[in-house]
């Protein structure tokens, strides 16, 4: 489904601040794969997300979705295949617009936008059904401005907006990191449920080791722009957090360092 081959990215080339962000990344996701990504600060996790979604373009290498090369396309042209939830709850929604209007924009993901009504009766019915799946009663507040919602509610809405049009790839970029533990738990549960129900091919960056082990069918670990460990489902089931940290130390020769790391 997603095929990343030989992707490399250099930041600030030719300057004293030159830094290898990604180095020869090879990653292939099968349809329905749910891959969790962990790694230390500056490992290139977010860069990888940005390269897939088109915020950045790789210096070398190819990104293919369903066999089609997309690495030369700008971000807005890739969105028809890719749904994304950002770390910042403010990033995934438009605050001065209503819940309904935000969903209307997500409904048009990757399609031409013309003079058709953003929300009509049929769409409203669909939005209401979808919102009710979140179980936080947003369906009763469809005309409320999103800026009035809490961070957790906004992130739940972002998750719905990223998924309900069934994109071929779902990118989750530490999407629970900015939330308090109770809300993070809610969003994690929703993520699990939505990804399972819609069998979305998903790549999830997380700082939560326990979550990285518990969710998904594959785990990859990144360090200094490389994928240093790739754990398949069979090994992942019996993995523990100390084992995972041990693996990191064994391969990279140092301890895993991440400001926000949560062991579980």
């Amino acid at each position: 489904m997603l095929d990343i081959s030989q992707v490399s990215k250099l930041f600030n080339p030719g300057t004293p601040d030159e830094k290898i962000a990604l180095m020869n990344i090879q990653l292939k996701l099968e349809p329905g794969d749910f891959v969790t990504v962990i790694g230390s600060n500056g490992a290139g996790k977010s860069t990888l997300m940005n390269i897939i979604s088109g915020v950045m373009k790789p210096d070398i290498g190819e990104v293919r979705i369903g066999g089609k090369a997309i690495h030369h396309l700008p971000e807005h042209m890739r969105s028809r295949w890719i749904g994304r939830v950002f770390q910042d709850p403010m990033a995934g929604t438009a605050p001065t617009m209503s819940i309904e209007e935000n969903l209307s924009m997500a409904y048009k993901r990757g399609k031409a936008r013309g003079f058709g009504w953003g929300a009509n009766a049929a769409k409203r019915k669909l939005f209401r059904e979808q919102l009710s799946r979140l179980g936080i009663r947003l369906e009763d507040r469809m005309s409320a401005k999103v800026g009035l919602l809490s961070g957790g509610e906004r992130q739940a809405l972002s998750l719905l907006m990223a998924t309900f049009t069934q994109p071929q790839i779902l990118l989750l970029d530490e999407h629970t990191a900015a939330l308090d533990p109770a809300r993070a738990e809610l969003i994690t549960d929703l993520t699990e449920e939505i990804v399972r129900d819609m069998s979305l091919t998903t790549l999830m960056v997380t700082h939560n080791m326990e979550q990285a082990i518990r969710l998904g069918n594959r785990l990859i670990m990144m360090d200094k722009g490389r994928i240093i460990l790739d754990i398949p489902e069979s090994r992942k089931r019996d993995l523990t957090v100390p084992q995972l940290l041990g693996e990191f130390e064994r391969i990279s020769g140092r301890q895993l360092a991440d400001d926000r790391i949560v062991l579980g």
């Binding site: 971000e75 438009a94 924009m105 003079f115 009504w117 953003g118």
Partner: peptide, 26 residues
């Protein structure tokens, strides 16, 4: 106009450009 699909994208451009780009509007 501001309630059509194009109009919504226009309003979102001033509100959260990154988000509307990730939803496919130029």
């Amino acid at each position: 106009f501001l309630h059509t699909d194009l109009g919504l994208a226009l309003r979102a451009t001033g509100d959260n450009a990154r988000m509307i780009r990730s939803l496919g509007a130029n």
